[in-house]
Nucleic acid binder design. Structure first.
Lengths: 214, 214
DNA sequence: CGCGGCATCTGACCATTGTCAAGTTCTATC
DNA sequence: GATAGAACTTGACAATGGTCAGATGCCGCG
């Protein structure tokens, strides 16, 4: 959590970039994504106020780099969760693992997660960001596709929306503190189990998806 | 969507409060919650820069008032959706209606929804806000309780988390534009149906909630 | 040992914002 | 129609931030 103010010599030399990203994490945790400013980051990294410009261009560039790092960690957390499964694990278990990995990431990296949700602060056209974000989504999408290979497009989209919304919403409410103390690790596991069961349930006819009349 | 710059006389009298809240909505839509400032609101309402202080105190007060208005509209949207049901509607249909009401609100009031998610910008100790937010949550909670009266605490919490996270996450991803074009009204309806079906499914033993081994 | 180039620093500029104090204009009430 | 009080305006202050230009220090190569 510390920012390594400076090695000893006067220059960071390549390490400045990471030191600035660490500073972003620190500020987001302490005072929220709003409070991030180029100057404050430079202050914490022990460098002068305009030292960040050569590395990131402007504030948006800095935050985009931070969010990209977050997307990479998210994908890694999902892959790690998958890696704990035996090779013979059922598709449902694999889908559940991606969900738990997502939640574990949000829990372990609250600063990254909060900033990744703030799409207004980052540049979503950035190639690096697109690639990282796409990789994380592909993990969920692949796990879902393996669950019921015969799904038609509509059923697949509904289930993707369900899994993604459910897990993301849980993490978002938790990160914002809007959960009223309801969210616990046990609830998280139960939630993932319910989500996977719902995705794995037999597909009903598109014209009456679910037993709920409007 | 317009802010009614000023009636004709020089003073808003009473109407300034609402005009400023309308300005907030306009700014959030155009430039995001960040861009909201007391001065910009005053500018759009056609009044001078410090006219908002007597009404809201400070910036946080203004945003809290806006969020409170949003919570009230959210509860209203859920009640409206419930009101379209026949009196004999099944509990599952009532739960689904609250979900659709929530989504309808977020779709119709994107500015309010976005700001309501930004708990760092509002004062959650505010009595008015607490009451409005509590009312909206009670609608979901009540509909859930009626679904399976015999639920134990754990099952109830998991299902509340599922319903809330699923619907909120869907709306949040949509509002942030992070959905990759996946979200359509049809997907929304399918999602609610899947959520309700999952909540209505028989409750498994707490020690093995779902068929998914870790 | 000298030198080029890059990383970083310093200083300054301009724009924006929240907040305060004091003045001004409108409305309502008598 | 006068007067009191609320609603709003004006002007100014301090703080913060992003950005630019030019100076300065450090590195490795020859």
């Amino acid at each position: 959590m510390s920012v390594t103010p400076k090695p000893e010599g006067r220059h960071h030399h390549g390490a400045l970039r990471q030191a600035l990203l660490d500073a972003v994490a620190e500020i987001v945790l302490e005072r929220g994504p709003e409070a991030v400013s180029l100057r404050e980051c430079a202050r914490r990294a022990g460098v002068s106020h305009s030292a960040a410009a050569p590395h990131f261009g402007d504030k948006r560039g800095l935050l985009t780099a931070f969010a990209t790092e977050g997307e990479a960690r998210l994908a890694q957390a999902m892959e790690d969760a998958l890696a704990t499964l035996p090779a013979t694990a059922a598709p449902a278990a694999r889908l559940a693992a991606t969900g738990r990995g997502y939640i574990a990431f949000a829990r372990a990296n609250p600063a990254h997660f909060r900033l990744m949700c703030r799409t207004d602060l980052i540049d979503r056209e950035d190639p690096g960001w697109c690639e990282a974000a796409g990789r994380a989504f592909a993990l969920l999408s692949d796990a879902m596709a393996a669950l019921q290979p015969g799904m038609d497009a509509r059923a697949r989209r509904a289930r993707l929306a369900l899994a993604w919304s459910g897990v993301h919403g849980f993490c978002a409410l938790r990160a914002e503190g809007s959960d009223g103390g309801l969210w616990t690790p046990q609830v998280a596991d139960d939630l993932v189990a319910l989500l996977v069961a719902a995705c794995a349930a037999p597909i009903r006819t598109p014209s009456a998806e679910g037993p709920v009349p409007s």
